[in-house]
């Protein structure tokens, strides 16, 4: 399946190799993400996860190989938590209008969609809590009516309940809007319960496939926290190091 483009595929990468400042960060990656799919990328620090994401959205040019995006593909991007400089006065509604101007109705809808009260629109971004700000970042990504949400470690700096609530929201949004989701995550229990497919990256794709789901019950999904067994399963998966991307 990987590397084979089809009508459902939003982004397809073939033999993707990325070099930055003379170093090869990623090599020979074949990857496809389809409509409505949730794919999670895991891997150690410095393994090339963020580079992979940036190459897929077109922010980096491949040294070799190709990245094909479906014509007219709209991507909503949620970065790792941003630091907004204290010297920059910025209301939530102004932030949501960057760089494309949005009207009040659109902004209200996006805030409601992400579980934020409409009054928050007039607040300064710097006054928000970490969890609120991540929701604002998600709201901003949704304003472009994306086919694909790209989330790069979107819960960095949130506490455990905050992380669980955020991913629950992502899943909910995905169900409602039907968009695909591609995310980098360290939260293995979330990976195990919420993803359709997991990609392990360490300079190349080490392994990929459906996560080992302990239980598919909605109760399990809602609880997230009981993912230890799932996480262990993933680690074992990691250690056997089967090069799944090979022929």
């Amino acid at each position: 399946m990987p590397g084979v483009s089809n009508a459902m595929s939003l982004i397809t990468a073939q033999n993707l190799t990325i070099r930055l400042e003379g170093r090869t960060i990623l090599h020979d990656v074949d990857f496809t993400i389809n409509e409505s799919e949730i794919v999670t990328v895991v891997g150690p620090n410095g393994s090339g996860k963020s580079t992979f994401m940036r190459a897929l959205v077109g922010a980096l040019t491949p040294a070799r190989g190709t990245v094909t995006r479906r014509a007219g593909l709209r991507i909503g991007y949620v970065p790792q938590t941003l630091h907004i400089d204290q010297t920059l006065p910025l209301t939530v509604s102004r932030f949501l209008s960057l760089p494309t101007r949005r009207n009040g109705r659109e902004i209200n809808a996006a805030l409601t969609e992400t579980g934020l009260p409409p009054e928050i629109a007039v607040q300064q971004v710097s006054a928000l809590s970490g969890g609120q700000f991540q929701r604002v970042l998600l709201a901003r990504a949704l304003l472009g009516d994306p086919h694909l949400l790209v989330l790069d470690e979107p819960t960095k700096g949130l506490d455990q309940p905050g992380v669980a609530a955020f991913y629950l929201l992502v899943e909910e949004v995905r169900r409602r809007l039907g968009c695909a989701v591609l995310m980098v995550s360290h939260d293995l229990h979330v990976v195990m319960s919420a993803s359709d497919r997991v990609i392990c990256i360490n300079g190349h794709i080490c392994c990929e496939g459906a996560p080992v789901v302990v239980s598919k019950a909605p109760e399990y999904r809602a609880m997230f926290g009981q993912g230890t067994r799932g996480a262990l399963a993933l680690y074992q998966h990691d250690h056997d190091h089967s090069h799944g991307a090979g022929p």
Binding site: Y77, P79, L82, L88, L98, P99, V150, D152
Partner: peptide, 12 residues
């Protein structure tokens, strides 16, 4: 302004 807020956001 977008590039001032975040390089990553701007690139996307």
């Amino acid at each position: 302004l977008t590039a001032t807020v975040s390089d990553d956001l701007a690139r996307a």
